[in-house]
Nucleic acid binder design. Structure first.
Lengths: 119, 119
DNA sequence: CAGTATCCGGTTTGATACTG
DNA sequence: CAGTATCAAACCGGATACTG
């Protein structure tokens, strides 16, 4: 029951605890493009081809793969619209919207970082 | 000057703008382990071997590689302590500490996510 | 202790061509 | 339009052995 030992253990537990939580989060949103896609859909729902244009650098293969995973994890909904030819609209679920704060936090930091290194 | 056009362009610009910012951020903190390492060092500075224990699953090779990159980007400081044998202490820079909010946000979401899927 | 060097299989990713 | 199939290249990352 020595105080220092208890404190250290306390910190280490918080640390491991957080790492586990981070790991859980990154399992879902940790891909190379997922945060970007979610961020996009935060502003408005979009079609496949729109996302392809908006998410700079992503290939079609990667986009459909990442979308599939996001859908599987119930962060987005895929809606097929019966036009000719068909179009597909992607939108965040309400669960996906719980990531809004997270994506904004990352974007904020990235913006400040760019300011810092580019000046 | 039609209103709808202006609005749409505005949204798209915000979208691309955010994606660029996210991309900038992920360049720095997007590795498999970086957020976890930073989260760890948020609580206290640590030695190499302590990090190896705390960051579950990481290998020595990956840890030193990630630490090198974090140091290069001035998020952490590596301090060699002249014991016998030498020990090395890693700590966040004040710039690295600007990531505190971000890591907590991710950990929070991950925690809630675990609650959701495990119940 | 705190790493580095090497080997090597597995995964990720891009380019391109193709489909309904 | 919204994808899928296939191949090849690049990268990731573990195990092991080694160094100062």
């Amino acid at each position: 029951m020595e105080k220092k030992t208890v404190t250290t253990k306390g910190i280490n537990n918080v640390c491991k605890h957080n790492i586990r939580a981070i790991h859980d989060a990154l399992d879902i949103i940790g891909g190379k493009w997922k945060i970007s896609i979610i961020s996009c859909l935060t502003f408005q729902s979009m079609r496949y081809s729109e996302l392809l244009r908006e998410v700079e650098g992503i290939s079609g293969k990667m986009l459909s793969r990442e979308l599939k995973e996001l859908e599987f994890n119930q962060l987005i909904i895929r809606e097929v619209i019966d036009t000719q030819p068909i179009t597909v609209q992607y939108q965040l679920t309400s669960y996906g919207e719980t990531l809004k704060h997270l994506t904004l936090t990352i974007a904020d930091w990235g913006l400040n970082h760019r300011k810092k290194i580019i000046g």
